[in-house]
């Protein structure tokens, strides 16, 4: 079980969190202007890297805030967390 450092509450057990997939996939500015293929990319395509991944978490059984984390998918090490709207930090 991961120990996830919520940027609002500090380190908490993974069971308190809800996973939200890849971060920084913004809802398109004007979906109507997108081709079917572009829209399908937004809907269905996500990165799946082996290594550092910027992903969304929600502290759903705690402060209920969404935030982003940089997690290494191979080691599960969390390199950093940052709040919604903050820029992605450089992974250490």
């Amino acid at each position: 079980m991961l120990l996830i450092p919520c940027p609002w509450c500090g380190p908490r057990e993974e069971a308190e969190f809800h996973y939200g997939g890849q971060a920084h996939v913004a809802y398109p500015e004007d979906p109507a202007a997108l081709s079917d293929e572009e829209w399908a990319r937004y809907l269905f395509f996500r990165d799946n890297p082996k290594g550092v991944f910027a992903e969304r978490w929600s502290h759903s059984a705690g402060c209920r805030r969404w935030f982003n984390a940089l997690r290494d998918t191979a080691t599960n090490q969390i390199h950093g967390v940052y709040r919604v709207g903050e820029p992605r930090p450089v992974a250490s």
Binding site: Y27, R64, W66, V84
Partner: peptide, 8 residues
């Protein structure tokens, strides 16, 4: 609702 409100 919270997800859209907070993240988008």
């Amino acid at each position: 609702m919270e997800e859209w409100l907070q993240t988008e």
